[in-house]
Design a protein around this nucleic acid. Sequence first.
DNA 1: TTGTTTTCCGAACACTGTCCGGGATTATAA
DNA 2: TTATAATCCCGGACAGTGTTCGGAAAACAA
Lengths: 206, 206
Amino acid sequence: MTATSSPKERRQARTREAILEAAQKIIQETGTDGLSMRAIAQRIDYSPAGLYEYFGGKEEIISAVCEGGNQQLFAYMDVVDRALPPADYLRAIGHAYIRFAIEQPDYFLLMFSSPSQAESAEDIATQNGDGSAFGLLLDAIRRGVTEGVFLDRTGFDVLTMAYAAWATVHGLAMLRVTHLQGYPMDFDAADEEVLLNFGRGLTSLG
Amino acid sequence: MTATSSPKERRQARTREAILEAAQKIIQETGTDGLSMRAIAQRIDYSPAGLYEYFGGKEEIISAVCEGGNQQLFAYMDVVDRALPPADYLRAIGHAYIRFAIEQPDYFLLMFSSPSQAESAEDIATQNGDGSAFGLLLDAIRRGVTEGVFLDRTGFDVLTMAYAAWATVHGLAMLRVTHLQGYPMDFDAADEEVLLNFGRGLTSLG
DNA sequence: TTGTTTTCCGAACACTGTCCGGGATTATAA
DNA sequence: TTATAATCCCGGACAGTGTTCGGAAAACAA
């Protein structure tokens, strides 16, 4: 029995967590380039080879860190009051997305720079608001549609709207952390304008 | 005299070009991960150390390749007929941007994944349509404003509009080549819808 | 106590980018 | 032509990287 966890499993889970925590701190302190197996091992008093008892390799560790990043991104967006009107709520989680990218650029680039870790399309499409940022977005748009605020016109269904919304905030966020650092402009105002305009596109027919 | 080029300089320029061409082909064939100094050297019958006579290091070579990528991106956008009405022209170069990302994903990610090679803000802001993709975008928006099609309202000047436009297409492009590969959706239609809506935001007051 | 499984490490392998010393080759000057 | 200098290019090394393997300790099971 004790199907949930044995002492051994708890121990393993703890060191796995230690490895991930070390990796996360290294990224935060020295950037993604400073992340190496040897650096992680040294930080938790292990030998580099010892890590392979808990993870298949560096790639797997990075994937796990990205998973943590997704949770952090979700946390950024989850503080937004869901009682807001759909259009306002959509804008607010959009700004939260951008804020996450600005405050955690290393995380953000790590998560979104490489071709994805093959999350299946169905994985994404069936996500709900259960801890996933995209699920939060889907729910918001669904709510807007059921409330009649967002118009579900042909060829632009809920999933497509979500893609469009994601792409919009993603571009704003990505550009700011990569090619537009230090660009002299009131980004927040511009972002608000773009998100406002996007909302107008959902609430009125083309 | 012969201030333009001496035989020596022509020779140097040619091997520099050979190095860049080799790097480009390696990226195209084996992806960015397969790019190594030794691979480049072998391809052009050089020793790895010899490359350092022409480039400061791998980073410099990559930057040069990115420069070529920018020219290629410009070429994609430059085929659009500039006689089109501003709004149509803006959409068309947007689609061209996305098409470049899809057809040259390795290039695209190489160019836009890492924090930029410190192009100064003024560098960007003063660009015209002289071979730069962003310059093309700026010109398009300027034309729309002077023709009275795009409305220059307070807090949303030409530069801000360009940022917004760039971010919009950039998000659409980036998402498709990273996290949405194989996602079952009519992307082109969705993109057109987003770009149409963006154009509406420029042509009408909020 | 035995036998077995889990943990962990030292050492190595095949890579990587980069630097240094020197040997050719070429260009310049006397 | 000859001497000098600049240029070009390479072998070999150095310090890193991710990863693998064999074998010790340690924990657990009988």
